[in-house]
Simulated scan of single mutants.
Amino acid sequence: MPRHRPALLLAALAAALLVVPATTGTAATRTPTAPKIKTRNAKVQIDVRGYLEIRRLHDTTSDCFPGESWTQVNRYDYATGGFRNINLKRVTGEGFDPVVTSTPSAPAGTAKVEGKILGYRTTNYCTGTKAEVKPEPTCAPVRRGRTRISLLETTPSSSTDDDELTPLSSGNRLQVAVFMTGSGLDDPDCVGGGPESLTGDALPTSIATTAIAPGNTTALPAGITTLKLFGIRRGQTIRRTAIVTGPCTRAEVDVVTGAGGSPSPARLNADGDCQVAGKLSYTIRPRPVKK
């Protein structure tokens, strides 16, 4: 009988080795590996200045009937008054698209919104009893506040952004958002507004408005992508200008490199005509390293 023990031990060991891989494989499926998350930070500074002006004509004048005519002008001016700090974070991982978040800059610089009436006149020139005409509209004083800036990630980029990058590798497009703080509410007699739609380089979430109820916000395309911004190097600067022009029914946005020109509203000819003119210029650079 003792001669058979080595054979029995070898058989038992072989059976144990066959069982171990199966048990190990089952345990591995029960504890999936967590996806790898990568975070990349960008500490930059941004200097922004710009304006948006909307002119709208009201004209019900007539040779023999009472009527009024005036041009309502609403204007929004803003400037950070120098470079302001912004922190951005880009999170990537398996199973989801990259996500970019931005902290807004602290309130700084200047911002103001103004509404006014130009060229008011009335007509009621026929003989006999004359009907009363409406009094001239009044506007609130200039509203003043400060400016905050944020960078927002939007839709996937097109081949028109960052010509040195391919559309597949350039990341999502960015836009510059301008917020006016500490200004209060506008007067309803002369409240401004914005274009009904924006075309051209405008993004689906672009905004251009002169109204400050409850708060003024303008968000226009930055003309760069997330990877362009996160790839900015020490000593490098990025300068872009978004120019807004055209009728309020369909204003156009054009993003150019550098300072760009200053558009003026087109001529108003008939009652209800409305024209937009504005620009948002910015410069971005890496935040200086503290010594």
Rank of each mutant, 00 (worst) to 15 (best):
T249G: 09
T138I: 08
I37C: 03
V178N: 02
T225L: 03
A219C: 02
R30K: 14
R3I: 07
G272D: 05
T225C: 09
Y125A: 13
L10R: 15
L8A: 14
T129R: 10
R239I: 02
L118W: 04
S169V: 15
G200S: 00
P2T: 14
P247H: 05
C190E: 04
K279E: 12
I54V: 12
V44N: 10
P221Y: 00
C126S: 13
L13Q: 08
G82M: 11
L168M: 11
D271M: 02
H4F: 15
R75A: 10
P288T: 01
G171E: 04
A108I: 03
P288A: 06
T33R: 13
E136V: 07
L220K: 00
L174G: 05
G145Q: 08
R56E: 11
R55F: 03
L229Q: 04
D271Q: 06
A27T: 05
T217Y: 12
S62K: 00
L9K: 06
A259S: 10
A79L: 14
F65A: 12
P156V: 09
T199K: 04
D273Q: 04
R239D: 14
L118I: 07
T205D: 13
T218K: 00
E68P: 00
I284R: 05
I149H: 07
C248K: 00
S264T: 13
K291I: 09
G50F: 04
L185V: 14
V176N: 09
C274N: 02
I232L: 15
Y76W: 14
S102T: 10
R250V: 01
R40G: 01
E94P: 03
N124S: 12
T39G: 05
R40T: 14
V244D: 01
V289L: 14
I207S: 03
A219E: 06
R49T: 12
Q275D: 09
E164Q: 14
I212S: 15
A108H: 00
T218Y: 00
P195I: 00
A140I: 04
T209F: 03
K36F: 13
G231E: 09
V91F: 04
N216T: 11
F96R: 03
N85P: 11
P107S: 02
S150F: 06
I232H: 05
N41Q: 10
S102R: 07
D186C: 10
R49E: 15
T283F: 07
